[in-house]
Each structure stands twice: as structure tokens, then as C-alpha cells.
């Protein structure tokens, strides 16, 4: 069954600029917010922006490699979320808040 192409009028640049915008919004969140969990979420946003560009490149160049990379990015994002949230839980237990400045008290 041949698939009907639904993206006849949109060029690759549209997707790439969307991806760049997502990345920069995520970066803005990382440098702007004080809550550790929101910072983690902003990092997820950045990773998603990168995923969009991988999928778009892969589609427009008719290869499958980009999709494989997207899977790796997703696995790493899930791992990062798990560890980050575990750290947030540990910080919350100690300081009763998850402000990023609580991490200043960590000394080796």
C-alpha cells in the first residue's frame, strides 16, 4: 500500500527552524528557572527539538539513520529523567524544597 505524501508544500527549513526554536526555548528555561524539576523539563524540551531535526533530516534524505538516533536520544532522555528525578527526591528530602540553589550546599 503506497502512502500518500502529506507534506508536499513544506520544505525542510520549516522543520529545522521549529527545531531550533524548541531548542532555544528549552535553553532559556534552563538558564532562567530556579526549580530543579522545571530545569529537567526544559532539558527534555531541548532534546525534543533535536529529535525533530533528526526526523526531518532523515525524511528529506530518505535514510533511516536519523530514526535510529532518535531512539537513542529517547533512551538517554528517559535515563536522564530517572536519575534527575531521583536526585530531586533526595534534595527534597534534605531541604524540603527543590530550588536549584539548594545544590550549593553540597560539599564533598
Amino acid at each position: 500500500m503506497p502512502l500518500t505524501s502529506s507534506l508536499t508544500e513544506i520544505s525542510l527549513n520549516h522543520y529545522l527552524i521549529l527545531s531550533a526554536a524548541l531548542f532555544c526555548i528549552g535553553m532559556f528555561g534552563v538558564i532562567m528557572r530556579k526549580n530543579a524539576i522545571v530545569i529537567l523539563m526544559s532539558i527534555e524540551l531541548m532534546l525534543n527539538g533535536v529529535n525533530v531535526s533528526f526526523v526531518a533530516f532523515s525524511r528529506y534524505q530518505n535514510t533511516m539513520d536519523g530514526y535510529v538516533i532518535v531512539f537513542f536520544v529517547m533512551a538517554i532522555a528517559a535515563a536522564e529523567a530517572a536519575v534527575g528525578l531521583a536526585l530531586a527526591v533526595a534534595i527534597f528530602k534534605r531541604f524540603r524544597e527543590i530550588n536549584i540553589s539548594s545544590f550549593e550546599h553540597l560539599k564533598g
Binding site: 502512502l3 508536499t8 525542510l12 529545522l16 528529506y60 530518505n62
Partner: peptide
Amino acid sequence: FADLNSSQLQPYES
């Protein structure tokens, strides 16, 4: 990437 536009796009077989 201005040269990569939708004209080069091939639909997947399935």
C-alpha cells in the same frame, strides 16, 4: 539547507 525542499521527497513504499 535551502536546496533540500519537498521536490526531492519520495514517499515510502509502506
